[in-house]
Design a protein around this nucleic acid. Sequence first.
DNA 1: TCACGTCATTGATTTCAATCAAGGCAGCGT
DNA 2: ACGCTGCCTTGATTGAAATCAATGACGTGA
Lengths: 253, 253
Amino acid sequence: MGGPSMLDHRTGNRRAPINLRTVIPDLCAKCEARHIGLCDSLCDEDLHFLANVGRQTTIAKGHGFVTEGDPARHFFNINRGTAKLYKDLPDGRRQITGFAGSGDFIGLAADTRYAFSAEAIEDVHLCRFDRTDLRAVFGRFPVIERRLLDVASHELIIAQEQMLLLGRKTAIERLASFLEVWHQRAAASPGQTQRLTLPMTRGDLADYLGLTIETVSRALSALRKQGVIAVAADHGVSVLQPARLAGIAQTVA
Amino acid sequence: MGGPSMLDHRTGNRRAPINLRTVIPDLCAKCEARHIGLCDSLCDEDLHFLANVGRQTTIAKGHGFVTEGDPARHFFNINRGTAKLYKDLPDGRRQITGFAGSGDFIGLAADTRYAFSAEAIEDVHLCRFDRTDLRAVFGRFPVIERRLLDVASHELIIAQEQMLLLGRKTAIERLASFLEVWHQRAAASPGQTQRLTLPMTRGDLADYLGLTIETVSRALSALRKQGVIAVAADHGVSVLQPARLAGIAQTVA
DNA sequence: TCACGTCATTGATTTCAATCAAGGCAGCGT
DNA sequence: ACGCTGCCTTGATTGAAATCAATGACGTGA
């Protein structure tokens, strides 16, 4: 205790990039007992502190766990599964603002009340913790606050890209853009190359892309007939021609 | 030096809300010499530090000062005037992702490169500073980093609201939503009650709402014919029936 | 095995906003 | 005064996606 690495995590001046996917689950110290990883060393006091913060929870597929307008008491970090985040209009129209998967953080877009609703589209394992506790975490580990600002900035970039999609792209361009993003994400993680398994239904896709179910289906068929993708029964999609997909998606660079 | 207020701004534990509109311009210490206001007291070292950070600049109406894809070297804080932030597709389609006015912060939605372009739609006075300097500012005044996280969170909320607008609202609902927001904002600041002067052209409005110029014009005419608003020549709009406007806008709550 | 509900695909028709087109108005420089 | 340009409005027509409609595939439970 008191060594240089100790100082590091307190000041937040650590050089090595810290991935939130590893940082935040470690806050669920009580549940998963993976205390180390936040930084090189933690003192007993830190461990004791972390042991009382997060709370591991499981949300069954199809169940909501955040409701727009409710007091924003919690933050969430997803360990496994996928959730959809959405906003509804009084007459039932819905806009899905994003899908949150493993490692993703839910609850940034909230002031005193949640600005969105959230529902599990697969069984979701997540770590829940109080906003008040989070404030204490910031005080103790400034690097986390810095990291959250980076996360928020990145989400803003994504959001602006989605505005471009919703405001100015055609149906087929929207589908291609979506597949492009998920293809990139899948390719980034080591494993299979071009085969994707999308966890969401056509309805979710429609609500995400600002279209109807029928138009999503037609756009997928169009891409399939052009030989750009292959569609399987189990929500599986194979990207056969990534370059053409990117071209259709109007990806700038 | 060393008093309680000193401790406050160093630890960022100040209770009173700090408005970025007052905080960040003060970083332009060299230009405006309004050093006090960040917190109750600053030591000589702080003043010297602040005197070398921001740089006051003026951007003439119609001129761009951020280009999407360029290395993101600077942050900006607007002191006066309005800028539009936008993304373009290769074929010229444009989506304006937001308008930044007095006190607003530009540059959060950037990683190593800008994810958007920015152009002044009025003469803009802004304070420019380097991202590298900003990092040092964070180290010295943690309260600013905390405040920036709040700002980013709020922008995420706005962005999600805009996704709902672009993905699911009709033309007239989009116009009404836009006027509703600007009406609220204007009403919040003391002064005139219902009269707005919009700084942007119909074209900008169209690019912001995901419509065409003609459709924006028609929607404005429709609202005018319904007696909800009155439209003046100089981009002036008076909200005559705020409640009906909100109803048309499908504002949830 | 069958009935039922959910989800997806495809076709026919309608509709809302885009496009095409014309004209008005204000500012500006010559 | 004149023409010019940029900006806005309004009308006529077109078009892309929504809506309406029918059908098929799949999983589940009786």
